[in-house]
């Protein structure tokens, strides 16, 4: 139906001109204006979920404590802002065990980490969660430097330095956290992100 519509419009225009044009030639200028809205679009995170798997040592001197968890990388491909003055902000929430039991002395029910969003501005956006052993205050937010030009790029997010509060023993269970990446105008662009 859209194609039919586009074809019909020029036909009507020709018909109108034919009726109005009766004699001599006249010339006029018509200003053609338009605008482009400010847009920022983030690509779909790949992978969409990070599963670090089993997080505790099961043998050796550190049995029950957090094992070494390697860096995790998420790519948000072909992200762009079509205006100058944008920035990436990152909100990271620590992994917290999915139960409501009170934490026991010597144990932790949260795993902290650092998140770093790079390849946008001159310096990355870094944030580190600081949940307590009980899982309180799991969230942290940081806004990075301004990108002074319109840009399209793959935003890269690195999750590193997984650690348990106080290096305590980890309570058994399923843990989950959340990372939110926001791409929008920087603080000086007038919009509150």
């Amino acid at each position: 139906m859209q194609i039919r519509c586009l074809l019909a419009l020029p036909l009507l225009a020709f018909a109108g001109a034919a009726i109005a044009q009766t004699s001599d030639t006249a010339t006029g200028d018509v200003t053609v204006g338009g605008n482009v809205a400010r847009l920022c679009v983030l690509g779909q995170p790949s992978p969409p979920t990070i599963d670090v798997g089993q997080m505790a040592e099961t043998s050796g001197t550190r049995v029950g404590r957090i094992r070494t968890i390697g860096a995790q990388v998420v790519i948000l491909p072909a992200s762009f802002c079509n205006f100058a003055g944008s920035a990436v902000s990152v909100t990271a929430t620590a992994l917290v065990v999915n139960d409501n039991l009170a934490v026991q002395p010597g144990f932790a029910r949260a795993v902290n980490y650092s998140a770093s969003a790079s390849n946008w501005a001159g310096s990355p956006t870094d944030v580190t969660t600081a949940a307590t052993a009980s899982g309180a205050t799991p969230s942290a937010t940081s806004t990075g430097a301004s990108q002074p030009l319109p840009k399209i790029a793959d935003v890269r997010l690195d999750l590193i330095n997984f650690s348990a509060p106080g290096d305590a023993l980890l309570v058994a269970g399923s843990y989950s956290g959340l990372v939110t990446v926001t791409l929008g105008p920087d603080a000086s662009s007038g919009d509150v992100q």
Binding site: A37, C40, G53, V63, V74, V97, A172, V181
Partner: peptide, 20 residues
């Protein structure tokens, strides 16, 4: 679309029940 976009992704892991 607007001038701001946000994407979420989950970070998950697990700890097995252990006794020592």
């Amino acid at each position: 679309q607007s001038d701001t976009d946000a994407k979420n992704f989950a970070v998950i892991g697990n700890v097995p029940a252990l006794c020592s």
